[in-house]
Structure formats: C-alpha cells, structure tokens
Design a protein around this nucleic acid. Structure first.
Lengths: 337, 337
DNA sequence: CTGTTAGCGCCTTCAT
DNA sequence: ATGAAGGCGCTAACAG
C-alpha cells in the first residue's frame, strides 16, 4: 500500500509538505504543490481515512437513527439524507434502523458513545422524555427531523407542519360542504411516541373549530398504524346511524383501509363518501386518492445540510425549520350527497 | 476522554494487559481480568474504534451498493442486510445509493479504493462487462445479491430464481386454460443492466415451450420500467385483433399499468383478462393482484451473512445460493372467457 | 502471565 | 516555504 511517506520520498520533499498539499494549505509553493500532485497521481495514492481520523480526532462519521426505513415515507426522507452525503462529503453515514424498543435503546446507546460519531440525525422518531437528558449530555451535534420534543429547542430541527396539514385536509372537505367529517388515526401513545397523527388530528380540530362545527367523539377513531386496523375502525364509524360524509385519515395507508371499508359497505367514493389521506405515497397516485403531500426528500436533505453546517461551525445557534405541506386533490373527494 | 492508558494506570497494570482483556486473550489471569474489567466499568471506558482500526489494519466497515433504495423491493433487501449487522457486529455499513450512471461510477470507484472498506455487497445491480475486471482487481471480499454476471462465478452470490418465477407465473395461467398469454416487461438493455425482467421472460418462454404453445412476438412488449409505460404497452397489446386473454407483467408496478389499461378498454379483470405481476409489493395485496413473491429480506440477510463469514474466513470457496419463489394467487386470475 | 516497545498513517506544531 | 519530530489510541511482538 502506498503511503504519504512513499509520495514524499518520490517527490523529494518531507512528508509534512505532502500533508499540506493534501489539506490545501496555502503555505506551499505552487511548484512543489504541482510536483507533489504529480507524484500522487503517478502512484495512484489516496490517503488512508482511518489514519486521518485518528490524527485529527474526528470520526468523520454521522449517524442517522430512524424507525422502519422500509416504509415509503421514511425511506424517502432517508434518501434525502443520503443524497446530500453522497454528493461530496468526507463523512460516512451509519444507519440505525429502529423497529423495537430494544433496538431503539441500542441505537441511542451506541451512537452517543464517545468516539463513534461526530454528529447524529434523528429521523421521524419523536424523543421520549427519558431520552432527553441522554441527548443533552451527549454534547454532540444533533439534528431532529420530524422528531420534536418541547425540551429540546436547543437542537436544530426540521419539521413538517402536521397541524397545518391536518387543517388543510379538513378545510378542503369543509369547503366542499361536508359537515360530518370523521378522523381515523394512530394510537396516540404507542411507545414509539409518533406524534404526527396527533398533530394532524389537532389540525382537524382546528379546522372544525374555525368553521364553528362541534367535535363529535364518535367521529374519532384510533388504532395501531395499519390498513386493516383502519378498515375495521372505518367499518364501525361508517355504520353509525348518522355516518360521516367524509373521513380524513392520518395516512394514506389508513385512507386505503377506509376506502376498502366503504366498498365493503357498498358506499361509493366520492359520491357517498369523501376520503382524504396523508403522505402522498405511490399508491395514492395509483388509486387516485386525495391526500396531503409533504416534502419528505427535502426534509432529509435540509436536516443533513444543517448537520454538516453545524459540524463545520459548532457555535451556530439552533435553527428551526418548518416545511410546508400541499393538498393534492384527486378523485376521492366531492361535495356531500 | 478516557483511554486504555487511564485504565491501565488505575488498575495498576500495563496497557498491554488491558488490551489483552479487551480482546479476550486467554493469556491473562482471572484475577487481573476481573480487576481490569472493574476499572473499565468504573471509568465507563469504551475503546476507540478508529485507533483500533488503524492498529489492526482493517476498516471494520463494509459497503453496500444498490440502486434506488426507496423502491419497495430494494429497500426490503437492504433491510435484511442492515438487520444482520445491527444484531451484533463490529462492522459499520456505508450505503451507496445508485440512481445515475455517474453515481454508479463513483460508488464503485470510491468503494474499491484501498483502505475504505473490508468488503462489499452489491445488491440488485447486475454487473456490467466493463466493471468485471474492476471487481476482480479490487481483490476484496464481495458478495453479489440479485446481481449476477457469468464471468463472476468466483464471487459469492445470492440469487432469486427469476426464470423459475417467470415460469411459475406463466404455468399458473396455462393451467387455468389460457393459450394467448402476453408479456410486458422492462427494456432488456437499459444501461443499468437489470436482468430480472429478461430472466422472467425466459421463464415465460420456457413455460410456453413446455406446453407446446408457440411464442407470438406481438404478445411481447417492453419499455422503461414504470406503470405508465406498461399501461401504454398494454393498451396496444390488448387492442390487437386477437388480443391475449392473460398478461404476465415482469413487476407489480407494470401489472398495475396493465390493470389500468384493461379498465380503460372496458375489459373486466379477471373475467375478460387475467393478470399476474411479480414482487408482491404492498399494493399488490391492496389491489388483490396475483403475483410472484420472492424472499427479499432473506436475500439481504443471507448475503450479509456470507460476507461476514468471508471476512472471518477469507479462504472460503464461493457459495452460490438460489432462493425460491412462490406464487400468490389473488383475484386477478381466472380461466379465460 | 505481564510490562514494555515499536509501529499503524496521518496531522501539526516547532524550528529553520 | 519546508523538514523533522511528536502524538492520536490501540495492537502485537518481544522480553522477561
């Protein structure tokens, strides 16, 4: 293997000079710089990143902790993260996929151990109370994407405005003339502490309130995230004596469950029932589902850019970004019957 | 930061002894081992992986190169890979997502450079002829998952039997009584060198041949991978004077395009037209699509296990594994009209 | 069994 | 502007 020493010898310079060339120091004459660069090319030398890391005392590695990265929304965010890094960066990325509380523990533990990573990105994994102090004590550059916690305002955060998104979806239905609008979402406290469903529900409440429509508890249903669960919930809700004429689901997956329930009950969509989802995953397009789109890829991008900026400029004050949402109207919404 | 030296001093031993304890050497008395372990706990010491890597001359890092990891099939494979590593391994994983020929080049270049990684996993990225020598010269443990090349039999490979899968799908249709069966797939030479569509087509041909049914070129159509492309192809094929009574699509995405074309032409599925897809992605379940399922997660798992075994035992002869496929019959196939 | 020593490859003062 | 030297934290070979 060819080392910096070989290059120095062949170029007839000290190895300090080679190092300076490698690090773009201005303290080296153009002539020798060119000579050294020539030898580097000739020998096809690339510097050993591990030795470099040990020497400068940085890992040049960042961690991203996220749950269920095979789910479309999460993987799209991750894609944004990866895209920034692959562009042009000396940083490596290690991924911690969290699917169980135990993995969650290991992820945090492992990542926050000294000398493992220079910074971390927490993606769609709302922080639990007991984790707050761990993160603060880690004393590590951390960016939270879609993973807030009131006690963590000192961290950089990139969030999507789930409240606004929920409001947007609901107002679309209200504007169409609906007055009986149901909500189908996730269990609010499920251990993973996902809060997006909750926030979308807040948006729903807000829209109702603004329109002067009282909230009806029988129009609210929650269960574990999933199509089948949502279908069951919707079947019950749509069998009420006075059933809703529209349903806002906290995700496209759940909206599809609602759609299936409607079909099973012989309700036509959108003539008898309007449905709005959330996320705009690929299936939404295929099925023609009206939904709320968020900037998934961009959220990952911006988060990673923030982290890199922070690594570069540790003193940066915390930045809180809020990404907009957008209503995508397709074929599952119409005025009430 | 607490180093091995601090531990040694506090435990009253030499730092070589601490290192031996860390590496489970048998050459250390139980008494001192316990004492050292006690101090390690007390000081909350963890060893610096970077220094370790430099010292042992290994990166303890493996690369995975894969295209479009946000696509369901690919991300599920990746998930298998990640799951093995997160279990319990000293290895880090760096991911190279390939979406353009340029990224592909960078990925190979970067990865195969000395001292970057100890091994690599190539996932669903069939090797191009010009890349073959690069891989061989890299002289690095490499496992190919779903990415074969005839000249690379010296590498470990985990493959799914796309030929058998294509045959399975087609035979299902033939058994139902279909005699006019169309095929809709990817362009065979598209630069990424994806060969799964081609192999599924071979399986289709094989099934026809075994049944003594001649291949009709007008029942074969290919274009870029995509739902809309497949829809256009199917529209043409289904408008033939003697249209096929069944279509086998090389992926679920394309099968959905065919489904849409059928609807647009007023053909009922499965009464007028049977459709079989491939992959069993989530949408297939939602739409009730008959399809072929492959062991995505397991392929990633097995590939990574092979790589780890190889890293452990470099002299291992190459292992070629072939994973089975399975037909999932749902609601889009029936006897011909 | 255990302490000491010499690197691993690179970066960074410190002189010159 | 450049060369020499020390050190990053750990491992492994060598003495004892």
């Amino acid at each position: 293997m060819v080392t910096i020493r070989d290059v120095a010898k062949k170029a007839g310079v000290g190895l300090g000079t080679v190092s300076r060339v490698l690090n773009n120091s201005t303290q080296v004459s153009e002539a020798t710089r060119q000579r050294v660069l020539g030898v580097i090319r000739e020998l096809n030398y690339t510097r050993n990143p591990i030795a470099r890391r040990l020497s400068i005392g940085k890992t040049l590695t960042v961690a991203v902790i996220l749950p269920f990265f095979t789910r479309p929304g999460f993987s799209e965010r991750l894609n944004g993260v990866v895209s920034v890094l692959s562009q042009q960066s000396q940083y490596d990325l290690v991924i911690h996929n969290i699917e169980t509380p135990e993995q969650r523990h290991i992820g945090f533990q492992d990542i926050l151990r000294r000398q493992r990573v220079d910074g971390a990105l927490i993606l769609s994994l709302p922080i639990l109370d007991k984790e707050v102090s761990t993160l603060i004590n880690a004393n590590l550059p951390i960016v939270l994407i879609d993973s807030g916690h009131p006690a963590l305002s000192m961290f950089h955060q990139v969030d999507v405005d789930d409240v606004a998104g929920g409001q947007l979806a609901t107002e679309h239905l209200l504007t169409l003339g609906h007055r009986r609008v149901g909500f189908v979402g996730d269990i609010i406290d499920n251990g993973f502490n996902f809060i997006s469903s909750r926030d979308r529900f807040f948006g729903y409440r807000k829209a109702l309130e603004k329109a002067g429509i009282p909230f009806r508890p029988e129009y609210y249903a929650e269960d574990e995230h999933g199509r089948l669960e949502a279908r069951a919930l919707a079947k019950t809700m749509l069998s009420l004596p006075e059933r809703p004429t529209a349903v806002f689901a906290a995700s496209d997956t759940q909206a599809i469950g609602v759609l299936e329930a409607a079909h099973a009950l012989g309700l036509r969509v959108p003539e008898d029932l309007s449905i709005v989802g959330y996320d705009d995953v690929e299936v939404a397009d295929i099925l023609g589902l009206t939904t709320v789109r968020q900037l998934l890829f961009e959220s990952g991008q911006q988060g990673m850019e923030l982290l890199l900026a922070m690594l570069d400029e540790p003193q940066m004050g915390p930045v809180h970004e809020m990404l907009p949402t957008e209503l995508v109207v397709r074929n599952t919404t119409a005025p009430p019957p």
